[in-house]
Design a protein around this nucleic acid. Sequence first.
DNA 1: AATGAATGAGTGTTCATTCAT
DNA 2: CATGAATGAACACTCATTCAT
Lengths: 213, 213, 213, 213
Amino acid sequence: MNDPTAEISDIVELAPGKRAQTKAANRSAILDAAREVFSEMGFESATVRDIIRRTGLSVGAFYNYYRSKEEVFDALADDGARRFRPILQAQSAQATDFASYLRAAVGAYFNFIAAEHEAWTRNLDAENSPVHVRNTPELVAVFDEVRRAFGATLGRTMADDVDLDYLAASAIAVAREVGDLMLRRSPLDVEGATDFVVALLSGGVAGLPRPRV
Amino acid sequence: MNDPTAEISDIVELAPGKRAQTKAANRSAILDAAREVFSEMGFESATVRDIIRRTGLSVGAFYNYYRSKEEVFDALADDGARRFRPILQAQSAQATDFASYLRAAVGAYFNFIAAEHEAWTRNLDAENSPVHVRNTPELVAVFDEVRRAFGATLGRTMADDVDLDYLAASAIAVAREVGDLMLRRSPLDVEGATDFVVALLSGGVAGLPRPRV
Amino acid sequence: MNDPTAEISDIVELAPGKRAQTKAANRSAILDAAREVFSEMGFESATVRDIIRRTGLSVGAFYNYYRSKEEVFDALADDGARRFRPILQAQSAQATDFASYLRAAVGAYFNFIAAEHEAWTRNLDAENSPVHVRNTPELVAVFDEVRRAFGATLGRTMADDVDLDYLAASAIAVAREVGDLMLRRSPLDVEGATDFVVALLSGGVAGLPRPRV
Amino acid sequence: MNDPTAEISDIVELAPGKRAQTKAANRSAILDAAREVFSEMGFESATVRDIIRRTGLSVGAFYNYYRSKEEVFDALADDGARRFRPILQAQSAQATDFASYLRAAVGAYFNFIAAEHEAWTRNLDAENSPVHVRNTPELVAVFDEVRRAFGATLGRTMADDVDLDYLAASAIAVAREVGDLMLRRSPLDVEGATDFVVALLSGGVAGLPRPRV
DNA sequence: AATGAATGAGTGTTCATTCAT
DNA sequence: CATGAATGAACACTCATTCAT
């Protein structure tokens, strides 16, 4: 920055914006790596070196993009929320009753995590992992969003004398657990998982769909 | 202490069990402190010093009782499981159908965590806590047990072509979430929470009870 | 001590001096254990607990007999020297020339370590041991004694224009090394080892005896 | 530093090797410090902090260069062996009989330790040191090499019915002891020490040279 | 005296973060 | 901006020693 030759070579060697592109690429490379690493080892166990190792960058570079390990973690949450919220809202905008909202929201969520697949590996090996794994921050953010949206939709649909807090928490928990399990199975069956959650939360055990073997 | 003979035997010979009493007290003090600390900060973030600080003991004392940080963590799981499993089994022994088992199991769980109250403070301040919170190991153990029992009961009741994995995971997640919320509320309403969970899982949103304000 | 019944039972149950006997026995039990442990693990690696574990006594008892780990170590040296010095002196009293003194001294040393056998296990597994083993303090003391006696005898025998320091150090080193090797072999051959050392130091390689296979 | 072009290239681009130089310097500074510290206090007593204190570096820096305390210790052995072995081999290649090999080997060893002087300070203050001193790993490695070479040469010269193990161990022990003493004297007399060892091992006490006072 | 739980300074090692190059 | 060596606070854990019983 205080090196004038840098400016020149920028112009000569790089297309305009090329540097900005690299910057953005690095930022997101770190973010992606962090998502993986935090998923696999949890926030505390993950080291900054674990993260940058996957990017090919240097430790120093990490601190050029994020001020701390904590900051990437938060950025991850922001990122997840920023990308999922619009999807969720779009999907659920036209929902009129609880069941349709539920289906839209859960479907959106499952499609989202299915798309992120790799990155959301998260609990895939939770069974045998050292137990000390952690919530990806994106989940937290997403859950907050879902919780809010849920509350709103429910308020519109049902008499608000139902225990909304309990219901929202329950629905989110179910979506989360089933989502994790869904990712663990192959082939990936988003529709089946969505059907299950919607059915369970709408009609209870009695209305549950039969899985196709 | 409230045993007058203790004073006498103290002088002549060691009060039988006096030392053992202190040891047991310290052991459980460490266990309690560990439960709190792991709840508040998670396994990784929690330091051995965090734990012993709450007991007034020394670092060395910690290692007199547990061989490692890991071991207290495991002991916590054992402890929780050991105390809850029999309760759970007793309660659910006579259950004949899914609904009755569900009610017995969930009721047992909610009563258990309600009784542990203080100790199970767990996520009570999760909202404002440093985000990096974690599962208490006891929960893990208990959940495993519940999951197993659930599978068994369900097999008896329903055709086993329902997605048992999804269902067990969902039920456990719901019980957990609602249980946490329940503890956060006052007055404590175990019955209400139990009703909610049973109703939701049995009949879906439609059958949900109305909360008494 | 402030327990009057103890005094009584001491008199009733134990022969007079019995207590003193126990004390002496404990002292030497600790000493023996320490010799073994220091031999096997070296001073630094050996822990006080390692030592008392072999005596059946308690940590506290250890500090009743010795003020510190260091003190047992020193006591070991004193002990070794105290027991070996008279033997050495008796054996070498009538020696008139270097060769006869050498034979007497080396023989005495080899017999001594052979007798202590077990305790002097010392380097027996030095080859595969973690390298970080240490000189038993007894060796140090014994060596000092040998060195002194050597100097004296040599002065009498040879013109003192030979390099006494070099010679004494060499002879001690040879005795030590060969002694260690001797203990490693079976059957134990004190005479053969003595012959070797005497021959080597007296007449060099040329005069060496042939080993019996 | 004494390279004028360095200044220029420093500004434009990193001086090639400048960093590498510092790294190498630090590495060897740590190695040297470790040699001293291990010599003075032994492996167990020596702390990593003791070592780095002498380098002015930080604890962390130590682990930048060596993965563990153990590793520096081993590196020390490698280092010593790597540097001495070729010298030893070169010196002893043309030896035809035991006496000439002995002279070449011992001479090489004494010259080596004399050259290393400072570093090999080793036992110089062993007399008043905290007793708990230890073999520098380099000695171990070097001794192994000497032992091997000795066996080979002796096999050629003498009937192999002499006790080679005893002889090799003895010769090595003598060289070591005399070497230590030699370093303690001033002026340094490598030739005198070599003469002594060769004479003692070849012809025994009888053939010993007279020291020049 | 004997016991063994308690103490806490000290050890090896890790890792987020800084900064000279 | 990138690099990666340097830093040092912090951690889990050990162990000589003390001391109440």
